[in-house]
Design a protein around this nucleic acid. Structure first.
Length: 678
DNA sequence: GTAATAGTAATTTTT
DNA sequence: TTACTATTAC
């Protein structure tokens, strides 16, 4: 990240050499955080701490992978491989939780291949609950309830207290849905993302033996991006480390941008209350950005009240002025950005990977994508097309999940008629009727029962019956297949057997689309093969594979080089680029309308988000906003975003819109100074 | 049971 | 503008 730094600076040194006891590192943007973390781990290992006793937690798989790579370089193993770091736990909170559940979930009444439900799955579950309970709720859509439930699960509050405290829905309504939701999950032998942390915390709390086991195994803990920790995650790591208190947390309160996911700034700001003896180190020397960029960022973030005092010290050159462009509309904005990149590629010998276009919301990426394409500039939309959300992938995974966990009814229903095999709504309803009163019987068991006792459902037509028999055979044969053979080979076989191609053509896909979908399916086989390769001889079960991929995010594969990155500000955290464009800086977009209307805290978080965006840039920074924008079809006038107007004008170089002489220059300056006065 | 069509609602951020 | 849903016709 900072190749210019050869030696550790004094603060970095202090942090690296503090090996035992609580340690809080405030690491401002671009101050060599990862370097400090990896060096510290190296020191721990050199001091004789077994790698297997070290647990490092990050927020994303990407961050975990980067750390692994950096450690690999720092700790060259004996036989060429990352030998000396071997055995170290390097995980996200969720995968760490999953690891614990894998070993002990039975204590909580689940059984072993359990399913991990994605946000989407949870949503379907809630939709089911709504229909079953005939809940009509004018403005209480499922996704609002989902957010609320997730928030509850990430808090430490008892359900009743939480229900009373929140004001979105009537307390009893919330509790009814929550109860039904939890019962359903349990019944399906499934956990959701939040459970991956909640359930381990419960295990550690209620089963002292289990806690002892982990305390024996793990002695040193490290949490990266600590400012984004939520109460339950904090509890998780605090409990694990409570005996020895070798807990090192690294974060930057100014970069806390996940409050909506339960992250609580007070955790990092109040760390000293829980650990009065903690050593605090502040890393403030920035090795990334030019002095002008840092001045802009510091000036903006200074408007926030609730923050630990700190200064960003520049170590580099003053740099260029920050360019500001007021676009007539969002199309012009995309054109301006793309043209600028094109020119810079030619005249300044930049490479595509030197550029990143940052925006607040995902849907903004489209136009940039379009305009870059027109100019033949290679691009990568980070997390854009979501691999695991593609229909064919979800279908295939549903098969895998059902094979692993027969109680996973959601998956069963998804694929029982996919590819189309003549098992329609009526047949399914009949199957379900068999279960009335029988709470313990799963839908899959009902299916097996129907097949073994043909007289059970008199209404069932012969054809439907035959289809059910065939479907059951398919599942049972495949299940055997998966126990006998490698996961990758079994998936390959399953794909072949299901004849997805026919289904795609039936759906009306073009030949090219069919090919693409087939390639996607193949990609899943590859993932399994990689995982098997990685395990080096150790067996990879279907359950392991599913666990791994459910915790993977869209862009977890290596970000392809040689392309302009299109990325949301949230996803850009931790990254840096020579040239950064921050687009859509009008009121309502960035800052987002919702956050601003919500509360003062909402605006403060948007400001931190803007701070994150600004500090991604190394050399050149371009800001832009639109004077009008198409929203839901209609053209709407826009105001300058209040965050943009917090950037000191003396750092700005205002770019004039081509062709329109009258609007931008003067009026823009007016707007800027006017909006700063309010 | 499936496919086509008309009508509708909608844009925060993600492990 | 698009993407998804519900209804209808086959």
């Amino acid at each position: 990240m900072s190749p210019t730094v050869e030696k550790l600076n004094p603060e970095q040194n202090t942090a690296v050499n503090h090996l035992h006891g609580p340690l809080l590192i405030f690491a401002a943007a671009g101050t060599g955080k990862t370097r400090v973390i990896t060096h510290r781990i190296q020191k721990l290992i050199q001091a004789g701490i077994p790698p297997g006793a070290i647990v490092a937690v990050t927020f994303t798989n990407k961050a975990a992978r980067e750390m692994r790579d950096r450690l690999g370089k720092l700790l060259p193993g004996k036989n060429g491989r990352r030998q000396s770091g071997r055995g170290m736990v390097l995980a996200t909170f969720h995968s760490l939780g999953n690891r614990i559940l894998r070993d002990h979930i039975c204590e909580l009444g689940y059984h072993l291949p359990y399913s991990i439900f994605s946000a989407d799955d949870s949503l379907s579950l809630l939709a089911e609950i709504y229909t079953e309970k005939k809940m009509t709720l004018e403005n209480l859509k499922e996704d609002r309830i989902q957010t609320l439930i997730s928030f509850y699960k990430n808090s430490e509050e008892p359900r009743e207290t939480f229900a009373e405290k929140q004001t979105r829905v009537p307390a009893d309504f919330f509790l009814e849905v929550l109860t039904a939701y939890e019962e359903k999950l349990k019944y399906l032998n499934a956990v959701d993302f939040d459970d991956l942390i909640r359930l381990p915390v419960r295990l550690l709390r209620d089963f002292p033996g289990i806690l002892q086991g982990y305390r024996k195994r793990w002695s040193h803990f490290l949490v990266d991006e600590f400012q984004d920790t939520n109460p339950i995650q904090y509890n998780f790591i605090k409990t694990l480390s409570a005996d020895k208190k070798n807990i090192c947390v690294v974060g930057d309160d100014d970069q806390s941008i996940y409050a909506w996911r339960g992250a609580d700034l007070n955790i990092i700001l109040g760390f000293h209350r829980d650990y009065p003896e903690a050593q605090v180190v502040k890393l403030e020397r920035n090795y990334r950005s030019t002095a002008r960029i840092l001045e802009a960022a510091s000036h903006v973030i200074a408007n926030n009240v609730e923050r630990a005092p700190k200064v960003l010290k520049a170590t580099g050159l003053a740099g260029e002025l920050i360019k500001l462009y007021a676009a007539p509309d969002e199309v012009q904005e995309a054109i301006y950005v793309s043209d600028t990149i094109k020119t810079s590629l030619i005249r300044r010998r930049r490479k595509p990977e030197d550029f990143a276009i940052l925006f607040r919301t995902n849907f903004q990426s489209r136009l940039f994508e379009q305009e870059l394409r027109k100019r033949n500039i290679p691009l990568h939309v980070v997390g854009g097309y979501k691999f695991f959300e593609r229909r064919e992938i979800r279908d295939l995974i549903a098969y895998l999940r059902l094979l692993a966990n027969p109680r996973d009814e959601l998956s069963l229903l998804r694929i029982i008629n996919r590819p189309v095999r003549g098992i329609g709504e009526k047949t399914i309803a009949r199957m379900q009727s068999l279960r009335e009163g029988e709470t313990s019987r799963s839908l899959f068991d009902s299916l097996a029962l129907i097949v073994s006792e043909p007289g059970l459902l008199p209404g069932l037509k012969k054809e439907a019956m035959a289809e059910l028999v065939e479907f059951l055979n398919l599942i049972e044969e495949e299940r055997k297949n998966f126990t006998k053979n490698k996961v990758s080979a079994s998936i390959q076989g399953l794909i072949k057997r299901l004849d997805f191609r026919r289904q795609f053509l039936r759906d009306g896909d073009e030949e090219s689309a069919v090919r693409a979908r087939e390639l996607n399916l193949q990609e899943l086989v590859n993932m399994a093969a990689y995982m098997e390769q990685d395990a080096q001889g150790e067996e990879v079960s279907l359950f392991d594979f599913l666990g791994r991929i459910s915790l993977l995010t869209a862009d977890d594969d290596d970000a392809p080089g040689g392309r302009v990155q299109l990325i949301t500000v949230h996803q850009s955290k931790g990254l840096e680029f020579p040239v950064v464009f921050v687009a859509g800086l009008e009121e309502g977009t960035f800052p987002s309308r919702r956050s601003v209307e919500e509360s003062e805290a909402g605006l403060a978080e948007e400001r931190r988000l803007f701070y994150v965006a600004l500090t991604r840039a190394r050399e050149d920074l371009y800001l832009s906003y639109c004077l009008s924008r198409r929203r839901a079809g209609a053209l709407v006038e826009c105001e300058v975003g209040r965050l943009l107007s917090e950037v000191p004008t003396h750092l700005l170089d205002v770019i004039h819109a081509e062709g329109s002489e009258e609007s931008p220059p003067l009026s823009l300056a007016d707007r800027l100074s006017a909006s700063r006065l309010d």
